[in-house]
Design a protein around this nucleic acid. Sequence first.
DNA 1: AGGTATAGATTACAGGTGTAAATGATGGAG
DNA 2: CTCCATCATTTACACCTGTAATCTATACCT
Lengths: 128, 128
Amino acid sequence: MNAPIRISESESEVMKLLWEQEPLTASEIIERLQRQMDWSDQTIKTFLNRLLNKEAIRFEKSGRTYLYYPLVTRDEYLRSENRSFLNRVYDGAIGMMCAKFLEEERLSDQEIEQLQRLLDKQKKGGDA
Amino acid sequence: MNAPIRISESESEVMKLLWEQEPLTASEIIERLQRQMDWSDQTIKTFLNRLLNKEAIRFEKSGRTYLYYPLVTRDEYLRSENRSFLNRVYDGAIGMMCAKFLEEERLSDQEIEQLQRLLDKQKKGGDA
DNA sequence: AGGTATAGATTACAGGTGTAAATGATGGAG
DNA sequence: CTCCATCATTTACACCTGTAATCTATACCT
């Protein structure tokens, strides 16, 4: 693996759509993104091209248009963003990070219980 | 509050030192950063100047040199980085975020118990 | 078949960031 | 008093990102 693929914030909005549904045409992507983002269609096409150059997505020709597919998976992306955030901001101190999040973000009881289950599992369950 | 102060990754390394100890002179900062980062002294001075311009730090003259003080606090920084990360990567879904972190990062039993205590407190304790 | 709309490709441009060199100012050594 | 070392300031430059406009090729309508 050479230089890891860096996906910018705007580009990630395109990726999020492709992780939900694959493949999508440029016009589908444009249509959906314009519902939430105030971007011109040209802007979105720029992101598609940059993602192609970075090899974060690929396309297949389908007549006059392209069908876009993700190459980077959502899990790869989340893993790498998590790692870089944790190291950049907290120097890897995950305890501190979680503490800060819990301090400032309000969780629903559902979420709290889900996390408690995860923590329990982690405490018992070894790595194998 | 106008445009929020954005601290870049490199700049944050300077801030981290100032959050540990305040004030510091440029040469102290340079000396400490060069232990871990492969940066020239000029590079570090650039970061100091950019932080000054952003008003993330301030200085007081002390003879021929400056004493630097943080203006942005560590807590402000962490809060804003947390929020932007959570929104940028997880669209605000903190449950999903925590789950992903727990999935991939191994926590010590200590950390797990600390988190469990925090979650307990959060479940009972309201906001007041 | 020719013209037009449209999809994709190329080019643009300013601001931020990493990385530093060049310049300017000044306190201290001689 | 003058020159140098050293600190701070200014300038430099390439790459990334956000944000498009412009150019090119071509499928379709008439």
